[in-house]
C-alpha cells in the first residue's frame, strides 16, 4: 500500500531532492564531450527558477502570490 502524502509535503520532498538533480546536470554539462560548460550558469539559474515554480505548484491557491514575491 502506497502511503499518500499531502500535496505540499510531496512538493517539499521534490524541492529537497532538487540539489541532487542540479548537481547531476552540472556534472553532466562539465563532462560533456560537446563543450557545454558555458551553459552551466544559465542552467543553474533556470533550475533555481524551477524550484520556485515547484514550490508554487505545491500551494496552487497561493501560486500567483508566490510569483509576485519572486
Amino acid at each position: 500500500m502506497i502511503r499518500h502524502r499531502g500535496r505540499l509535503r510531496r512538493h517539499l520532498i521534490i524541492v529537497g531532492s532538487a540539489s541532487g538533480t542540479i548537481v547531476d546536470l552540472v556534472r553532466g554539462l562539465w563532462r560533456s564531450t560537446g563543450g557545454r560548460r558555458w551553459m552551466i550558469p544559465l542552467v543553474v539559474f533556470l533550475c533555481s527558477v524551477g524550484v520556485i515554480l515547484t514550490l508554487a505548484a505545491g500551494v496552487e491557491a497561493l501560486a500567483p502570490f508566490i510569483y509576485s514575491i519572486f
Binding site: I2, H11, I14, S17, A18, T21, C47, G50, L53, T54
Partner: peptide, 19 residues
C-alpha cells in the same frame, strides 16, 4: 521551461515523494 523545470526535471524527487 515551466514544463521542464516546473515538473519534468525533478523525476527523482517526484518518485521519492510519491512512493
Amino acid at each position: 521551461m515551466k514544463n521542464m523545470v516546473g515538473e519534468k526535471l525533478w523525476v527523482r524527487g517526484i518518485i521519492s515523494a510519491q512512493l
